[in-house]
Structures are given as C-alpha cells and as structure tokens.
C-alpha cells in the first residue's frame, strides 16, 4: 500500500504519456508526408494569387519547418488549446465533442448487439462442446469475422433499404422527423453492421474461457454437491468466464472506433469516424490530429480502466 502503489501508478502513467507522444509524432509526420496540401482548397478560389496564398500559409503556420509546427501544436495540446479547423476556424475540441454523441450512441448500440450475441453464442458453444450448436456458432463467428465491414453495410443497405425499404439508407435523421422511432430506424442498420462484425471477438473469447472452466473439476464437484445447474452456470461459469473478459474488453472496445470509421462512412453517420475521414480529405491537420490524439487517449484510458476493474472484480488479486 501507499508508496509502492504510488510508484506503480506513476510509472504506468509515465509509460502512457510516452506512448501518446510517440503516437502524436508518428501521426504528425505521416500526415505531412502524405501527398496533398491544405492550401489546395484555396488555390482554385477566384482571384487567388501566390502572394495571398503565402499569406494564408503563414497565417496557418504552414511556412514553418515541420518540427516547429509540431512543437507549436504540442504546446497547444498541453495548454488545452487543440487548435482550430483549417476549414471553418472553429475550435477542434468543440468539433470533436459535437460529433462524439453520434459515435457513442452508435457504439453503445453496436456493443449491446455484439456483446449479447457474442456471449450467448460463446456460452452455448461451450455448454454443447463438440456438438452441432458448437459447430454452428463457430462457423457463424468465422463468417462474421471474415466479412469486411463496408461490404456488410452495403449489403444491408441493398437488402433492407433499397429492396425492402424497411430502413433509411443512412444519416442521423430524416428532415422534419425528430421522433425516437425515426431515430432508431436510422440507427438500426449501422448498429447492426458494426455490432455483427464485432460478435466474433466476444463469442470466441467466451467460448474459450467458458470451455476452460467447464473442464475444471469445480463444475463436477459443484454438481456432486447437489448445486442446481442454473446456479452453476451463473455463479461459476458466467462469473468465471466474464472475469478474464474484462481485460479483453479493454483492448477491444477502442477497436469499435475503427469499425465506426467505416460504418459511419457507409451510412453517412455524423460521428467521429466520418469527421476523421472528411478532415483527412480536406487535409484539415488540426482536426485530424485532434481525432487521432482523442482516439489514442481513449485506447489508453479504456485499457487502464479495464485493468483497474479487473483488479477490483477478481478477489484473487484483491487478497
């Protein structure tokens, strides 16, 4: 307790800050190495002169050497100023926050779908190991794992929006429709797409963890002691298998974000993912860097939280 723990937290925090720095340097460098120029959006403007263009570049700080631009950006980040968008001069942090809600809603809906389906499939497979159910859930998992997200999204749009016309093809809401039902209809397809492609993560891990516990003597002993199967499944199997799922979730939750990138683009869902792609196309460096750093921080925070939660939830680590 006390000193040792503090030291551990400090060291952990130090490593994570170092990681963030590396991510930012790599991102910054790659971004500026990539072809294209934020100034290109101005070159075609009527009456644009080279002189005027240089002026704009100077105003954006683009005439400075790369390392200077980076240090300037880094200083801004440290002092809470994430910069302003090249496109409309609004603050980057504000833009990110305004796109966050849509991504969180999509993420939560997809997580709900993938988590319940994945855990259910994994558990069924483990309980019926080697039988048809096990094979079927395994094959479904492998198929879902192999499906490209964008392709699944397009297939859904084709089947459910174009052919059956059950759901809208995309966007957040239809003009003039602010009802919950209307919103859910818009959410359904992107959430299903993002949810289904992440089912295999949960189902395969659950199948493995639950299978390992079922092999242990403690299940047979619990039965020998006359405990009911319901009690054994909930208290022994589910509890024991969900515990190692916590760190897995910490690693995989942020990958929802990269899945969201594609899903949001396919369904024109106005979230962080689409913001990132749009900004990339416009070479809107401050926004791209902002989203990049935001995602990196999210990854670190989520894995750290999972680690802490695992410590709290596993009695063996508490003792």
């Amino acid at each position: 307790m006390g000193n040792g723990n503090l030291l551990y937290v400090l060291r952990l925090g130090g490593v994570k800050i170092l990681l963030l720095l590396l991510v930012s340097i790599t991102g910054f460098t790659l971004l500026h190495l990539a072809p294209g120029d934020p100034l290109s959006q101005f070159t075609l403007a009527p009456g644009m002169t080279a002189e005027r263009l240089a002026q704009i570049a100077h105003g954006m700080g683009l005439d400075q050497p790369l390392w200077r631009q980076y240090l300037h950006w880094l200083h801004g980040i440290m002092t809470g100023d994430w910069g302003r968008s090249f496109r409309d001069q609004s603050p980057v942090l504000g833009i990110i926050v305004s796109h966050l809600t849509a991504t969180i809603e999509l993420g939560l809906a997809a997580l709900g779908i993938s988590f319940s389906l994945g855990l259910g499939m994994g558990l069924m497979g483990a309980l019926r190991a080697g039988r048809t159910v096990d094979d079927v859930t395994s094959v479904i998992s492998i198929i879902l794992f192999s499906l490209p997200t964008f392709w699944l999204g397009l297939v859904f749009i084709y089947i459910f929006s174009v052919r059956l016309q059950w759901f809208p093809t995309g966007n957040f809401s239809s003009p003039g429709d602010r009802s919950i039902v209307g919103y859910l209809r818009h959410l359904a397809l992107p959430a299903l797409t993002l949810g289904l492609v992440s089912v295999p993560v949960w189902s395969r891990y659950m199948r493995t963890f639950a299978g390992e516990i079922l092999k242990q003597d403690q299940i047979r002993t619990a039965r020998a002691l006359g405990l009911s199967s319901g009690r054994i499944i909930v208290h022994r199997l589910l509890r024991g298998a969900l515990l190692p799922m916590i760190p897995v979730a910490g690693i995989y939750l942020p990958t929802l974000l990269s899945g969201a990138l594609v899903t949001e683009t396919v369904f024109s869902w106005p979230g962080i993912g689409r913001l990132f792609l749009d900004s990339l196309q416009y070479r809107d460096y401050p926004v791209v860097m902002g989203v990049l750093m935001f995602s990196a921080i999210l990854v670190l925070v989520s894995s750290t939280l999972a680690e802490l939660l695992h410590h709290v939830a596993d009695p063996r680590l508490r003792a």
Partner: peptide
Amino acid sequence: FQDPLSSLDPL
C-alpha cells in the same frame, strides 16, 4: 475428488 484446488471455486 483427487485435486482439492481445482475442485473448489477459486473465486
């Protein structure tokens, strides 16, 4: 059973 550790619930 034979192995009392794996027979008990570790959690």
